[in-house]
Write a protein that binds this DNA or RNA. Structure first.
Length: 387
RNA sequence: GGGCAGGUGGCAGAGCGGUCAAUUGCACCAGACUGUAAAUCUGGCGGACAUCGUCCUACGGGGGUUCAAAUCCCUCCCUGCCCA
């Protein structure tokens, strides 16, 4: 067994996923390293950040022609000098983000559901989706991806955990679209399992179904019955439905396998996920927002580029031991650095937010392991400014 | 003293008779970012009322030409460079 549950508190749980590159203590967070490294960091800085888990991307590594190069040196770990476990996403998200996401001008979380025929007019979609796979138009070129090919690439990349190729639907897609899409995603899931040849990698199946209870439950049941090593919950959630959707999506999955919540990572959503029984998360939020000047702290997210921080001599987060804070960088230093040396500022901000997230997850595990009734609530209150 | 070039919103810097409350950049303010198309994007940025909008004060000071001036003329002040 690759996964051991250690402690449970309600549905929340701690555990350990064993991989060829070490153990992942859960709950845990995969920092997004699309092209190999976390954005803005080089190999040394990546090492300094010491992410316990990262997730790279099949689509981007494929279209930038890096797959063969990675394969030749023996996989992502070797190519990028990464010792810790790595996941790769299948490219399923790009079916959405480069397709409907562009047309709908929207991310995977939305508070509005706009039902209109133009939202499903696939002639406008730069990604052509058929029952067999998807053809992307990207940078003026065409790239095809399907379950078999995605798995092959992911085997070449050699991550510890790989994902099934799915269709991530848009928040603006209606019930009918999601229902049809689900047939595809389930068919593709079976094809992925069949295509998998290599051992030593865990393959996670993905539950879809949008924000619709019956579809989520149906998908959960169908995917849950397949012989995946773990499961991802993908697709759109809607701002208010997050908890419910997770619950439905987990309803048909075997308890003793790891559950990953794809692409979710706002602090408040992490707490929701953990309480529902999610083991791992991944999200661009901590790293992207760092580059954009948002530094995480329990007293709130600091938009460090704002004028009010120009003379602020306080540290970003009291007692923070990230590389930058440990060196004595204060809020005003970060503020100035974003003006004088943006690249360096982005690196340091990235290191800070990674440290912040790692600390958060360590505390979440601690809270669950403590077995104390209010430990998670107390922790959540500590982070109230971010929720 | 002579010659030349200039003085535009917090700064830099366009505009050189009407379409100019004035391009653009920086700064500033507000917002966004959830399996990375984003090392980013979107608004605002003279004042007042404020919904498109309306009114006021504005392109160094003063005076003039004109239906109309940031834009043309005169004059004064200031700045930079060059020659004495």
């Amino acid at each position: 067994m690759f996964f051991k549950i250690k402690n449970k508190f309600g549905k929340a749980r701690t555990g350990v996923i064993s991989t060829p590159h070490g153990e992942i203590k859960t709950p845990n967070f995969a920092f997004v390293a699309t092209h190999g490294f976390i954005k803005s960091l080089d190999d040394k800085e990546h090492k300094l950040a010491a992410p316990e888990l990262t997730i790279s991307n099949t689509f981007h590594l494929y279209v930038t022609g890096k797959v063969n190069e990675v394969k030749k040196v023996g996989g992502l770990h070797k190519r990028f000098k990464i010792k810790n476990p790595i996941m790769t996403d299948s490219g399923g998200f790009q079916v959405f983000s480069l397709g409907w996401g562009k047309i709908h001008k929207i991310g995977k979380i939305s508070s509005t559901i706009l039902l209109s025929t133009s939202n499903v007019d696939s002639s406008k979609n730069p990604v052509k989706i058929t029952s067999n796979g998807a053809v992307f138009t990207y940078d003026g070129k065409k790239y095809a991806l399907d379950p078999k090919k995605s798995i092959k690439i992911q085997e070449d990349l050699g991550a510890d955990i790989i994902f099934a190729f799915d269709e991530c639907t848009s928040p603006l897609h209606d019930y009918e679209y999601n229902k049809k899409s689900l047939i595809k995603t389930h068919k593709w899931a079976a094809e992925c399992l069949k295509a998998k040849k290599k051992n030593g990698q865990m393959l996670f199946g993905i539950v879809q179904g949008g924000i619709y209870e019956d579809l989520r439950k149906e998908s959960s049941q169908a995917i849950g019955e397949m012989s995946f090593d773990g499961f991802g919950i993908g697709g759109s959630f809607g701002e208010k439905q997050m908890g419910k959707v997770i619950e439905w999506a987990l309803s048909g999955l075997p308890e003793d396998k790891p559950k990953h919540l794809l692409g979710i990572g706002a602090i408040e959503d992490i707490f929701i996920g953990v309480r529902k029984g999610i083991d791992t998360f991944d999200c661009v939020i901590p790293t992207r927002e760092a580059r954009h000047g948002a530094l995480y702290s329990k007293v709130g997210k600091l938009d460090i580029k704002k004028g009010l921080f120009a003379k602020d001599r306080k540290s970003v987060e009291r007692g923070c031991e990230c590389f930058a804070c440990a060196k004595g960088l204060k809020r005003k230093d970060f503020h100035l650095l974003f003006k004088t040396d943006k690249e360096k500022a982005q690196k340091l901000a990235t290191l800070h937010n990674i440290f912040f997230y790692k600390t958060l997850f360590a505390k979440i595990r601690e809270a669950i392991n403590s077995g104390k009734k209010n430990a998670l609530d107390k922790l959540e209150k500590e982070y109230r400014e971010l929720i």
